[in-house]
Amino acid sequence: MIEIRLFATFRENRKKIDYIDSNQVEKALDIVNYYGIDPEDVAICLINGFHSKLTDSIKDGDVVALFPPVGGG
């Protein structure tokens, strides 16, 4: 299974945490498309806590966290 964590506006009308069978997806981009998120809205994609590209591969057991543009200090 892949664990998906959605944050900020990506949570609107979606779950905060979800799981997808790893056989269904190859790349982070597949997850973004699965949730109907515009890839251009993704500012930060973390795979297991490390910044990654949407085109990076994912594997069983990975945790994928997606954020729109956000900031603070």
């Binding site: 500012a43 729109p68 956000v70 900031g71």
Partner: peptide, 20 residues
């Protein structure tokens, strides 16, 4: 035009950083 200053910060404040 900036997603942080027009979206992230006004909507969630600096607190949006907790999860990131």
């Amino acid at each position: 035009a900036n997603g942080v200053t027009s979206g992230g910060l006004p909507t969630y404040g600096t607190a949006v950083l907790v999860n990131i």
